[in-house]
């Protein structure tokens, strides 16, 4: 029998070396997350997957995507305390970018939006930043709308490690300065060897990297998160 740890009181089996997040996903239990993807090493940057490891001193917080599972651990996940913190983090994501769901073609398929619904985020709460972020429409098949970027860096990893093209890089400092850069002399996507079939072209959890001329082709009701909340789709394949 494999070792287990407790997640919100439920026994979760794991194999040595698995993280809390990996074991939870394998068991079909949802831990909210944005930057983590099962096919790639953990990035640990969004902090939405923060859980609480109960110990003799009350407990300590950690990212479940980087925390290795140990037998006998007791972990809190969907508690009011943690979901409150996650909601605040989400609100910060929403105000840092320009997320206009009503006219966004990623609506219904967007992990950020689905997570906000899951965590019952009712308003952005904080003042909007309205950052000035460009749209790069130069590529014939792919549109980049950086207004919606949440800096998960999945495109950077996929382009570097799977496509072997290094099209994207994270650069700059500060909330408004840090952003995704395009690895070409002009800074335009058209001047890279990026292709619509690349892994990086199909990994964005939000509406930044989009295949052109396909927006709104899937009717309301048939989009991924129209059918069931994100917490009930843990076993479904991730894009």
């Amino acid at each position: 029998m494999s070792a287990t740890f407790q997640l919100d009181g439920e026994d979760i089996p794991f194999t040595p070396g698995q993280t809390i997040m990996q074991a939870a996903k394998a068991a079909g239990v949802y831990i909210p997350h944005l930057c983590w993807h099962p096919d790639f090493p953990a990035h640990g940057s969004c902090k939405l997957c923060t859980v609480k490891l109960i110990d003799a001193h009350g407990g300590r917080f950690g990212s479940s995507c980087t925390m290795e599972a140990q037998a006998g651990m007791s972990i809190e996940n969907r508690t009011a305390e943690l979901d409150d913190k996650r909601r605040t983090l989400l609100q910060m994501f929403f105000v840092e970018g320009n997320h206009f769901c009503p006219s966004c073609e990623k609506s219904g398929n967007c992990v950020l939006q689905a997570t906000a619904y899951e965590l019952k985020m009712m308003s952005p709460h904080f003042d909007m930043f309205y950052p000035d972020r460009p749209v790069d429409a130069s590529h014939p098949d792919v549109l980049l709308d950086f207004n919606r970027c949440i800096m998960c860096s999945l495109c950077v990893t996929a382009s570097r490690d799977v496509d072997r093209k290094n099209v994207f890089a994270m650069g700059g400092r500060g909330i408004l300065g840090r952003k995704i850069h395009i690895n070409s002399e002009s800074g335009r996507l058209a001047d890279t060897d990026f292709a619509v079939t690349d892994r990086a072209a199909n990994i964005c959890p939000v509406g930044v990297i989009l295949t052109k001329r396909k927006g709104f082709a899937v009717p309301i009701g048939e989009r991924r998160y129209d059918k069931a909340p994100i917490s009930e789709q843990v076993k479904e394949p991730t894009a």
Binding site: P102, S103, E105, V135, R213, K214, G215, F216
Partner: peptide
Amino acid sequence: QGRPYWEVPVMVQR
């Protein structure tokens, strides 16, 4: 202005 054209029918109805 600057938005992709396929977004327009959904946006302008607002």
